[in-house]
Amino acid sequence: MALSGLFLIFFLLQHLTINFTSVFSPETFNELSHFMGTNFVVQAILQPVLAFGVFFHLAMGIRLELMNRKARPVKYAYSKPGANSSWVSRNMIITGITVLLFLALHFYDFWIPELKIKYVDGLMDDTTRYYPELLHKFENPVRVGLYVLSFVFLALHLLHGFQSAFQSMGARHKKYTPIIEKLGTAYAVLVPFGFIVIAIYHFVAH
């Protein structure tokens, strides 16, 4: 969980960086998107690694949840979990599945059309289509709303996930752990917020 989680955290940062270029330079965004979509290393090596990372993380997460449920076959009649732990730490499966649902939508929205354009329509070499495509996706207010909501859930997932990954790997230190925790909170808030800002910017500005 921890390793794949950290890997995905790293990926997210890269994704955000590329998305951000769309705000100030459509040309850069087009260029980078085209590079990511056609570069051999990215497509043949990094993309499968990412797919595996996502799949591994979700499969292990679901397995973990099922095992942990089994460990307490009879539930308490009265329990007050809020007295000793945070909601985000206890509900990783809920926030995780929400993000997964978003991922399904994201695939349907970007990835499947992308494959069609590249391999069925044969527009592999079109280097200018990415930016207009992006704008088109952020026209519909319902879609933007869903997008924003998903990133709120991602933020909740990361609020626990970031620092939890370090603890699981045994990386805990009197001096560094408080820093990791602060960094985790900052990351969990700022990165999803960045995605949200980009979506709202395009929705409002165009």
Binding site: M67, N68, P81, S86
Partner: peptide, 30 residues
Amino acid sequence: GFGNCTNTGACAVECPKEISLENIARMNRE
């Protein structure tokens, strides 16, 4: 048949002897 740790930290809060989560990290390391 005990469950797996997901770092909610409830244990350390409820522990009568205030055993710290640092021990879990140490065990994970080892």
